[in-house]
Design a protein around this nucleic acid. Structure first.
Length: 598
DNA sequence: GCCGTTTTCGGCCCGACTGTTTTCAGTCG
C-alpha cells in the first residue's frame, strides 16, 4: 500500500513554472555577452552576470517569482530585469536580445571567449575585417590580416591560431573534482616546501581551499627566503609540464593533465593578505573591498591602505578581517552569499558555528556485497567503528535497481538477519538494517510496507526515469516523502557534477513536504554528487528540513566520502544542530518521522 | 543595471601581465 500519494498536487493558486532557472540564467548570460559586445559600460554587463548567477542558484522557481512580480526580492534583480524575465516567459525571448542578435553574429561570442581576446577586440575584428566566426578568424590569422588592426600584431595571430588548434573555442577548460584537486594541490605544496627545507612554506588557496565542487586552477601561496630557487623547483616538479610568466611575484604553470597552477610569493608579514586574496572567491573579494571603501580603506593582496597613512599588512587572515571590522570568515563561506553582513562586528546576524567532520556520529547510507558494494557487513562495520562512529546503516539497493545486483524481498529478509547477527558479534558500534529503496516513476516504492517496517532505516532514492518533467517529478518525490516508512530521501536532485544536470523538480515544494512530514533530506558525500548542493542544502535547512549527511560508500575506502558531504554542509552554513547524524541513534530517531507499525 | 547608516543619482575593487605601444588599452584573475 502506498500512503499519502494522492495528498499532494500543485495548488491552483500557484502558477506552474514554465522555464527552469537554468534557462532564465542562460538568457541573461547571453544578453550580458551581447551588451558587452555592444560596448555597454562594464557595470551593466556585470549586473547581468550577477543576476544570472543569482537566478541559477535560486532555490525557488524564478519564473513563478517573476510571474508574481516578486523577482526583485532576489539580490541583484531590479525592476528592469524583473520585466525582462517576464517578457522571456511570455514570448520565449527578450526584445533586447533579438535586437542585438541581429547586430552581432553568434560566432562573435565564441571569439570573445578565446584567450587574449575579449569583447573589444572581437568587435574590432567584426567591424574592420568582417570576421563573424572562429573559422573566419582562423583564416584571417593564417593570412596575417589580424595585424592590420591597430593594437593587434603577429604575437596575437600566433596565440589565436594556437587557441583554435587546441579547440578552446569549442569546449570549456577542464575542471577538476575537489578530491583530485586537493590531492594535486597538497602534493605540489609538499614537494615545493621540501625543495628548500624548513625555510619555505607553501599553502593551498583558491576554490580548492573553499572546498568547491570542482576547481579550474590551483593557487599556491609561498613564503621563502630564496624565491629564485623556489621557482626553479616548480619547473622541475614531475607534475609540471610548462612554466610561463615567471616574475618577482611568482609564476604560472600547467600540469601534464592541463591544470593551471598559480604560485605566488608572499612577504612573511603579509601572508594573511595574500592568502585571503587568493582564496577568494572573486565575488567575496569584490564585495569585501566595496565595503572597505565605504570605511575609507583600500584592500589589495599586499595590504590595507588608508588615505594618507602607511599600508598595513597582516600575518593572518583573522587579523585582516578584524582590521576591516569583521569576524573571521571560514573559507567555505566566502562566496558573497551574505557572509560579510553576518561577520560584521558592529551587529548584524552572526556567522554560524560550522559543522565539523568530528561531530559526525554515524553513517546512514552504504552498500555491501548484498548489492553493488565490495565489502561485507562486518568489514564495513569494523571500518566505520575505526572512524569513531556509533552506528552505521546498511542500505543496499532494492528490488528494481535496474543495474543488476538487485536485492529481492527474500534476499532483504536474509540481509536483515545477517545484520542482526553481525550486530550481536561486532562490539562498539550499532549496526542498523536498512535499504536504499527505489522510488518508482509513479511514486510507489519497490518493497511492501510489511517488509519496510522491519527495517531500522529507509532511504528512498530515484535511479530511473529522470526525464519525466517537473510537475510529475515533484509529485513522484513528494509521494515518497509522504510515505510513513521513509526516513530520508537519498541524493535528492540526481545531479552528477560536470556530467548530469539535476532533474527538473520543484525543490521549494519538496522542502515544504519534507519539513511537514519530518522526512530528512540527504547530502550525499560521493564527490561526484554532493547532492543536495551547498545552495540547496542551505535553503532546505532554512525551510525547516533536517539534513542527514551520508557517504554512500560502496567499499571500506569510500566511507571517507563523509568528508565531502561535510564540506558541502559547511558551504551551506550548517551547524551540528541542523544535521541529524551529529546525534546518537536514539536522539536521531526522535528527530525523524514518527513511524507507525514496526 | 543595481543600489543606499553619506546617496533615488552617481557611484559601482584592485593589481598584474601582454603586446603593442612611445604612454597604454585590453584582458585576466
Amino acid at each position: 500500500m502506498r500512503a499519502g500519494a494522492q495528498q499532494w498536487a500543485y495548488p491552483d493558486d500557484v502558477p506552474k513554472p514554465e522555464l527552469p532557472n537554468a534557462a532564465i540564467a542562460e538568457a541573461l548570460e547571453e544578453l550580458g555577452d551581447l551588451y558587452e559586445l555592444d560596448g555597454a559600460i562594464v557595470h551593466r554587463v556585470v549586473a547581468y552576470r550577477t543576476a544570472a548567477r543569482t537566478v541559477r542558484e535560486a532555490p525557488v522557481s524564478v519564473a513563478a517569482l517573476a510571474r508574481a512580480g516578486r523577482a526583485t526580492e532576489l539580490p541583484g534583480i531590479g525592476a528592469t530585469l524583473q520585466e525582462k524575465i517576464v517578457a522571456l516567459l511570455d514570448s520565449g525571448t527578450i526584445p533586447a536580445t533579438q535586437k542585438l542578435r541581429a547586430k552581432f553574429p553568434p560566432g562573435l561570442i565564441a571569439i570573445m571567449r578565446l584567450p587574449g581576446l575579449g569583447p573589444k577586440r572581437a568587435r574590432q575584428l567584426h567591424d574592420e575585417l568582417g570576421i563573424d566566426s572562429p573559422e573566419a578568424l582562423r583564416q584571417a590569422a593564417q593570412a596575417q590580416r589580424l595585424r592590420t588592426v591597430r593594437g593587434l600584431g603577429p604575437k596575437l595571430e600566433q596565440s589565436v591560431l594556437a587557441a583554435l588548434e587546441a579547440g578552446a573555442a569549442e569546449r570549456l577548460a577542464p575542471r577538476v573534482l575537489l578530491p583530485k584537486a586537493l590531492q594535486l594541490g597538497e602534493a605540489l605544496s609538499a614537494a615545493l616546501a621540501d625543495s628548500d627545507g624548513a625555510a619555505t612554506q607553501v599553502l593551498l588557496a583558491g576554490s580548492a581551499r573553499r572546498q568547491a565542487d570542482s576547481v579550474k586552477d590551483l593557487d599556491l601561496i609561498a613564503t621563502t627566503s630564496r624565491p629564485a630557487a623556489l621557482l626553479k623547483a616548480l619547473e622541475e616538479l614531475d607534475q609540471i609540464e610548462s612554466v610561463s610568466s615567471t616574475g618577482e611575484a611568482g609564476a604560472r604553470a600547467r600540469t601534464h593533465a592541463g591544470v593551471r597552477v598559480e604560485l605566488r610569493i608572499a612577504k612573511r608579514g603579509a601572508v594573511g593578505n595574500m592568502l585571503q586574496h587568493f582564496t577568494g572567491s572573486g565575488r567575496h573579494n569584490a564585495a569585501l573591498r566595496e565595503a572597505a571603501v565605504r570605511r575609507g580603506l583600500h584592500v589589495s593582496e599586499y595590504g590595507v591602505s588608508e588615505e594618507g597613512a602607511a599600508t598595513r599588512t597582516c600575518a593572518t587572515e583573522a587579523e585582516l578581517y578584524e582590521l576591516l571590522g569583521l569576524a573571521y570568515i571560514e573559507p567555505e563561506l566566502r562566496e558573497d552569499r551574505g557572509e560579510l553582513d553576518a561577520a560584521r562586528l558592529d551587529g548584524g546576524p552572526a556567522l554560524p558555528r560550522l559543522l565539523t567532520l568530528e561531530q559526525i556520529r554515524g553513517d546512514l547510507h552504504c552498500h555491501t556485497i548484498a548489492s553493488d558494494g565490495h565489502n561485507t557487513i562486518e568489514e564495513m562495520a569494523t571500518a566505520a567503528r575505526e572512524r569513531g562512529y556509533e552506528y552505521i546503516a546498511f542500505t543496499d539497493h532494492s528490488a528494481s535497481h535496474g543495474f543488476g545486483n538487485e536485492v529481492s524481498p527474500a534476499q532483504l529478509r536474509r540481509q536483515i538477519e545477517l545484520v542482526r547477527e553481525a550486530d550481536a558479534r561486532v562490539e562498539g558500534i550499532r549496526l542498523l538494517a536498512g535499504s536504499e529503496v527505489n522510488i518508482l516513476p509513479d511514486g510507489r516504492l519497490d518493497y511492501d510496507d510489511e517488509l519496510l517496517a522491519q527495517l531500522d532505516w529507509v532511504i528512498a532514492s530515484m535511479h530511473t526515469a529522470f526525464g519525466m518533467g517537473e510537475a510529475a517529478m515533484t509529485r513522484r518525490m513528494i509521494s515518497a516523502i509522504e510515505h510513513p516508512l521513509v526516513d530520508a530521501i537519498g541524493h535528492p536532485t540526481g545531479r552528477l557534477i560536470q556530467r548530469r544536470a539535476p532533474y527538473a523538480i520543484d525543490l521549494d515544494a519538496v522542502f515544504a513536504a519534507a519539513a511537514a512530514t519530518r522526512t530528512m533530506l540527504e547530502i550525499n558525500g560521493n564527490p561526484d554528487r554532493r547532492d543536495l548542493t551547498d545552495v540547496h542544502a542551505r535553503a532546505a535547512a532554512r525551510a525547516g528540513v533536517t539534513v542527514v549527511i551520508d557517504s554512500d560508500a560502496h567499499r571500506v575506502a569510500t566511507l571517507q566520502n563523509m568528508r565531502w558531504g561535510v564540506a558541502t554542509a559547511r558551504r551551506a552554513w550548517l551547524s551540528a544542530r541542523e544535521v541529524a547524524n551529529t546525534r546518537s541513534w536514539p536522539q536521531l530517531r526522535k528527530l525523524g518521522k514518527k513511524k507507525g507499525a514496526g
